[in-house]
Simulated scan of single mutants.
Amino acid sequence: MARGKRQDVWEFFGGLLKERREGAGLSQGELGGRVFVSGAYIGLFEQGIRKPQLDVAKRIDEVLQTGGIFERTWRKLIDKSPYASYFHAVAELERVATRICEFAPMAMPGLLQTASYTRALTIATYPFATEQYIDEQIAARLERAALLQDATRPEYWVVLHENAVRASVGGAATMVEQLEHILALARKRWVLVTVVPRAVGAHAHMTGTLKLMEFMDQPPTAYTETEFSGTLLDDPAVVKQARHAYDLLRAATLSPEASLELIESAAEDFRRCTRTT
């Protein structure tokens, strides 16, 4: 489902929620209290800005006595999402974030990936994938990345480990394109990139990716991901811990200028490989 159409259906979900809530004579705060979220969250659901978790959709059905319409609609939307079940909410939150801070230890983050890089990464992860599946993954990544070209793009900070910069995903030509893409975004000041050099050794958050998101009118979130699963966190104490880990990571990085020099050096190394093959 295309981004515009998917958002239209989420807005339909929100409009239906508002209609049923008002029909039951409940304010946003009253409904929120009964389903264990804030009234402000109910307002965000109704505007299609934030998407409820499945358990919240079920509780809304129970309180408003809808016969399960919100659960069914939620499941239909998720089934049509191009993302893994644990990631769909993250992709939606990226669209409304005012700041995104990300750490990538082994591979480039999705918002920075080129089509060729995504293709190579997908085939490496799913060697028996069909061309249709690969094309869907590429389209989904590029759709997400489009937010960086928007006039209202979020402030985007990225910490890369040097392993992610130097790992030859898809071969030398693909890596040249990928690294040049990151350099171009950095030079446009659409993203601030720093690199944790290999020489640092041990550092904070050694395993998995980390993404922090801040918003205009809702609490910040943290998202961590390993190879087969991801977890979206919004508990304030846990998000604070994640922010502390990210601050420690940034303290271990090269300066922005030195980081771009390292990326340029890696790109040149890959260029030499293309000239000798």
Rank of each mutant, 00 (worst) to 15 (best):
T174P: 08
L248W: 00
P220V: 12
T98I: 14
E46V: 02
R20Y: 01
A104M: 04
C101R: 15
I69W: 10
F70C: 15
F103I: 00
A91S: 08
A202G: 10
T73L: 15
P256H: 10
R72T: 13
W74R: 14
L160P: 03
R75C: 07
F87V: 01
I100Y: 08
I263G: 05
L232N: 04
T231K: 07
K188L: 15
L17Q: 05
K76I: 10
A252N: 11
G39V: 01
R75K: 11
A40H: 07
D217G: 09
E102A: 03
F45L: 14
V239H: 09
Y126K: 11
R250Y: 01
R198Q: 13
L148K: 05
L262Q: 01
R72I: 09
L249E: 04
D269S: 12
I263E: 03
V191F: 12
Q137P: 01
R95F: 00
R3T: 07
R119S: 09
V191L: 05
Y126A: 13
E94W: 01
W10R: 10
E136C: 08
D234E: 15
Q218P: 00
R21V: 04
S255I: 02
V176D: 05
A97R: 11
L112R: 02
A84V: 03
T73F: 15
D55E: 14
P219K: 11
V35G: 11
E22I: 01
G43C: 03
V169M: 12
G14W: 05
S81A: 10
S265H: 06
Y126C: 02
E264Y: 00
L179W: 06
T231F: 07
L192W: 05
L183T: 12
T73N: 08
E264W: 00
V193G: 03
K5H: 12
A24I: 01
A202Q: 11
L254S: 11
A199F: 05
D135I: 00
H203K: 11
Y86W: 15
R189F: 14
Q178S: 12
F12T: 03
E214Q: 15
E71F: 10
T224V: 14
R99Q: 14
R187Y: 05
T221F: 01
V165F: 04
I123K: 11
